[in-house]
């Protein structure tokens, strides 16, 4: 009971500052790492990406469980997890950063805004500094954040076996699509 009272009080105090937080558990991240001449498509989708944006500070976090990437072929998914991402060792990937031009985005006014996001992207346990251009669309109390960019597999110490070098591209193109609601 005491715990509930304390929790309620804490929530009441923190309440007003919560209003600037937007969140989703179901953002979508997909990637395509198909080499130009590959007969098979090497692509996957993850619909379980947690995203939090603080409209006041511009803080932005994406976090995704690697094992929730879905491939058309089970074998490819297995290889992705075991040989490339080593998802038993590194079960999640994460981006933590800031919308550097958050001041230019009016989160209370409907519209589409260009955003620049700078921060640290961690894949396969390797953190790298990245800056990515994206778009933020405000509609009522939901915002949609989207971005498309490329990552070099070698930057994240993901080694490609020579056997599949003609199928797997050296760079993966990543698409992010998140619809967040105010919390």
């Amino acid at each position: 009971m005491k715990k509930i009272i304390i929790a309620t009080l804490l929530l009441a105090i923190a309440g007003p500052s919560f209003a600037q937080k937007y969140m989703t558990r179901t953002a979508k991240v997909s990637f395509n790492a198909t080499a130009p001449k590959s007969p098979e498509k090497i692509e996957a989708v993850n619909n379980e990406v947690a995203t939090i944006i603080d409209s006041k500070t511009g803080d932005i976090v994406f976090q995704m469980p690697i094992k929730s990437f879905k491939f058309e072929r089970e074998l490819m998914q297995q290889h992705f997890n075991e040989n490339y991402m080593e998802s038993d060792k590194f079960p999640k990937s994460e981006f933590k950063g800031k919308i550097t031009n958050a001041a230019d985005i009016t989160f209370t006014k409907d519209g589409t805004y260009k955003a620049t996001v700078t921060g640290t992207l961690t894949i396969h346990g390797v953190p790298q500094a990245v800056t990515v251009p994206g778009t933020i669309t405000v509609k009522g109390n939901t915002i949609t954040a989207s971005a498309k960019f490329a990552v070099k597999l070698a930057d994240y110490k993901i080694t490609v076996a020579s056997m599949v070098a003609d199928k797997l591209a050296k760079e993966a193109s990543i698409t992010i699509d998140a619809t967040l609601t105010q919390k």
């Binding site: 558990r25 379980e48 976090q63 469980p65 690697i66 929730s68 079960p91 999640k92």
Partner: peptide, 14 residues
């Protein structure tokens, strides 16, 4: 479901 681990918003089962 199959567990994909823990994250900032909870534990994922897929």
């Amino acid at each position: 479901g199959q567990c994909s681990g823990n994250g900032i918003t909870g534990i994922s089962l897929t």
